[in-house]
Design a protein around this nucleic acid. Structure first.
Length: 448
DNA sequence: TTTTGAGTTGTTCGA
DNA sequence: GTCGAACAACTCAAA
């Protein structure tokens, strides 16, 4: 191999240079690599402004790491990737596989267009420690339950981190490039973008919070989570890097975090096998489920004006930060589906619009998990009581007061069971005990 | 082959 | 206040 003919490394959700298997593979084929990113309207349009703004930040950082040699184009990927590859006389286009429904369709079209031009398409790695589809039951069929998947995923061999130092290749000077777009204005305060910020955050986590992560990750009033979800979404860091750092660590926090990373991979695996579950019920019995049609109720939920403090705090955190604590995501989701009887996909869409970390597989399938239509092997009667959840996981009420200013005058845990409601804070929009019974009744109708 | 036990995240009720 | 039982039906793996 001469390594003279240049190749393209097309970045998608792998916006980093470290531990990058596709970059390593590209470097084996050529020392001249063009770094390409395609702004794809089909992806940008449904995504919300916070995620778009964060993406542009990550592209800025990546471009800096590349010495300004990131080629940015806008348009239809099949046309744009072929055009860029031809412009530099590339022999191949290297990518990290995108296993989502849209990514697979898009990549099939791009690979075909490249083949017509005698340009190779090389997929190496994916955004997951174990590429979706690789973990199966002995008979080759996919797992439907998390725990067995977790066991098999743990037993599945993992690759070591890819050694991709800064001098691995000579980055090709782009023949042309757009400037990185000005991020859309967002009111949410977003995290620092890019690979460096991701790794700094990770190392800070390892230096302290991991010790108590096991318990603290359930506490929205504490800053006990990794906050890595936006970086994992865009591939500023690869989960393999994190798992390698946790290797052999038996502390409860490390075990717990490995489990969370496995959930991310499980949902990607489910979506890979069942791409339609991004829109449709995983459990088709739920196609017969009765939902309400109540625009006003939905809007109150979106705005954080339900009258249930923990729900309202979560919904407002989402708007303020483009992020919501995991525990609270479950509580607000349960409230939408089981107290307001609105369909999960409405909530999932709202989340995708506002979350910086919005990931199709994790988002849609976690929503389905809460709604009962997903992979949950556990009971249908698991209906969150928003008051109990607030008292249990925000015991001093600090989380609620941080995001619901109307309640700042209410001390301690009293924010969860308001005796005197401030005039500007709404009464509970529904009676939880009643709506719980309604949900159980509706569930009974579709399963009996 | 059949049986058995367990399954991320819960709540309510009655003792 | 604390505790255990009950709340379906199904998936998966081990016995």
């Amino acid at each position: 191999m001469t390594r003279e003919a240049p190749v393209v490394l097309w970045f998608r959700r792998d916006l980093r240079l470290g531990d990058h298997a596709a970059l390593l593979e590209a470097s084996r084929h050529s020392k001249h690599v063009l770094a390409l990113y395609v702004l794809d309207e089909a992806l940008l349009k449904p995504g919300g402004a916070p995620r778009e703004a964060f993406l542009y930040g990550c592209l800025e950082k990546l471009n800096e790491q590349l010495g300004g040699r990131l080629m940015l184009v806008r348009g239809e990927p099949a046309a744009e990737v072929v055009r860029a590859a031809r412009e530099i006389g590339a022999a191949a286009v290297h990518v990290s596989a995108d296993t989502g429904p849209y990514g697979r369709r898009r990549d099939a079209a791009v690979a075909e267009a490249l083949a017509e031009n005698n340009i190779d398409w090389v997929e190496t790695g994916s955004p997951y420690a174990v590429t979706p589809g690789r973990v199966t039951k002995p008979d080759g069929s996919p797992y439907r339950v998390f725990t067995p998947f977790h066991r098999a995923w743990t037993a599945h061999g993992r690759h070591s981190p890819a050694d991709t130092g800064p001098s691995l290749v000579d980055w090709v000077v782009p023949p042309r490039s757009l400037g990185i777009p000005r991020p859309p204005r967002v009111s949410a305060v977003l995290p620092e973008p890019g690979e460096r910020a991701a790794l700094n955050g990770w190392h800070d986590f390892l230096d302290g919070p991991i010790e108590t992560y096991d318990a603290d990750r359930d506490r929205p009033d504490r800053d006990g989570t990794t906050r890595l979800s936006p970086y994992l979404r865009w591939g500023c860091v690869h989960p393999r890097t994190l798992l390698a750092d946790l290797d052999g660590d038996d502390r409860p926090g490390a075990k717990s975090l490995r489990g969370e990373l496995c959930w991310r991979e499980f949902h990607a695996d489910v979506l890979w096998h069942r791409p339609e579950t991004a829109r449709e019920n995983y459990d088709r019995r739920f196609d017969a489920m009765t939902y309400d049609d109540d625009r006003e109720a939905f809007e109150r939920w979106c705005a954080g004006r339900t009258g249930y403090p923990i729900v309202d705090a979560g919904m407002r955190q989402l708007l303020a930060e483009g992020w919501m604590h995991n525990r609270v995501r479950m509580v607000v989701a349960s409230f939408l589906v089981k107290d307001l009887h609105l369909p999960w996909w409405l909530g999932a869409r709202h989340f995708m619009k506002h979350l910086v970390d919005g990931d199709l597989a994790s988002n849609q399938l976690n929503w389905q998990w809460v709604a009962g239509s997903g992979t949950d092997a556990a009971p249908y009667f698991r209906i969150f009581n928003p008051t109990t959840q607030g008292e249990k996981f925000d015991p001093q009420g600090n989380y609620v007061r941080k995001y619901v200013p109307e309640l700042r005058g209410v001390p301690g845990k009293a924010v969860h069971q308001l005796k005197d409601r401030p005039a500007d804070y709404p009464a509970p929009m529904v009676d939880h005990a009643h709506e719980r019974r309604v949900s159980l009744e509706r569930y009974g109708k579709i399963t009996s």
